[in-house]
């Protein structure tokens, strides 16, 4: 055994230095991520209101949560936003990537241009789109000034439509990023595969649909994961763009949680909703990690 273990006089420092260096971040993560998750989990079973208290109430907070109409609006909005944001962002990104892949001139400039939104924080995106979509300031006023006074675009202040403005801003921000991922994938595909398909008589859409995009399945799943977790924890975009309003019509779970816990003195309900979000994320991430890890073991 020993003869495989390298030199016997392996120094104390060499052995302990890596652990020493890693220890602080390990400890911090342990306390501030997992410790607080556990604490939050505990709080969700207590009667905490404005401040934490430790009076055990069992599942009462979850019952309040599930009976709350506003919570259900937030969940419904999450599905609307998540579905359209992921689907739309993915479709836009793939489309842009396919167009950019046609060896057009000025590709470098366009790629940078499309990628820029990702460099902005969601707060900036949200604020910018708030101005653009504001009926009195942005798009609607512009079209009115052009003379089309019958034009209305008031989604931002329309409770039925406000969540869709979040979708628009989200897609705008993320599609460049999706494009970059897919473009990298497209570039990795052997040119001669496409040539072979041309000789086989396939049209360009058919080549992409049947041969190229299926080969990008791993990229597709990675992108899906990234967009899904952005969607579930999206908070800043909604806060900056609509603030959850009008009323609570564009609330999503994260804003609901924030409002409950920190502005409306229902810390227990907030904690319970946070646990539900954690469960949702875990439901997506755990199978993904499982398949990834299994995949790399097979490779």
């Amino acid at each position: 055994m020993t003869q495989f273990n390298g030199p016997a006089q392996y120094g104390f420092a060499e052995r302990w230095l890596p652990r020493l260096v890693l220890a602080p971040s390990f400890l911090l993560t342990l306390v501030f991520v997992y410790g607080f998750i556990a604490w939050n989990g505990y709080l969700s079973f207590t009667a905490s209101r404005l401040l934490p208290n430790y009076e055990w109430v069992g599942l009462a907070q979850y019952e309040t949560l599930f009976a709350n109409e506003r919570a259900w609006v937030a969940v419904k909005n999450l599905f609307i936003f998540g579905g359209l944001f992921i689907g739309g962002g993915m479709a836009m990104g793939i489309l842009l990537a396919v167009f950019l892949d046609q060896k057009i001139r000025g590709e470098g400039v366009l790629r940078t241009l499309y990628l820029y939104p990702m460099a902005l924080s969601f707060i900036v995106t949200g604020t910018a789109w708030k101005w653009m979509l504001n009926p009195g300031l942005g798009l609607e006023k512009l079209v009115h000034d052009w003379g089309f006074t019958s034009f209305t675009f008031d989604w931002l202040v329309n409770p039925d439509m406000s969540i869709y403005t979040v979708v628009i801003a989200g897609i705008w921000q993320s599609s460049g990023f999706v494009m970059a991922l897919f473009l990298a994938g497209l570039r990795g595909i052997d040119d001669s595969i496409i040539k072979a398909a041309q000789i086989d008589g396939a049209s360009l859409p058919r080549i992409y649909w049947r041969i190229v995009l299926p080969a990008l399945r791993p990229v597709f799943f990675s992108t899906l994961m990234i967009l899904a977790h952005i969607a579930i924890k999206s908070f800043d975009l909604v806060m900056a763009l609509t603030g959850g309003g009008p009323g609570f019509s564009s609330d999503v779970p994260a804003t609901f949680m924030y409002a409950s816990a920190f502005t409306r003195g229902q810390m227990g309900v907030g904690a319970a909703s946070a646990m539900m979000m954690l469960a949702t994320v875990a439901a997506i991430v755990v199978p993904y990690l499982y398949s990834e890890l299994r995949g790399s073991r097979n490779a």
Binding site: D190, S192, I193, A196, A197, I199, A215
Partner: peptide, 12 residues
């Protein structure tokens, strides 16, 4: 009909 140097089989 053409056979390519890199085979160019459709991977999926």
């Amino acid at each position: 009909a053409m056979v390519f140097q890199s085979y160019a089989l459709y991977p999926t």
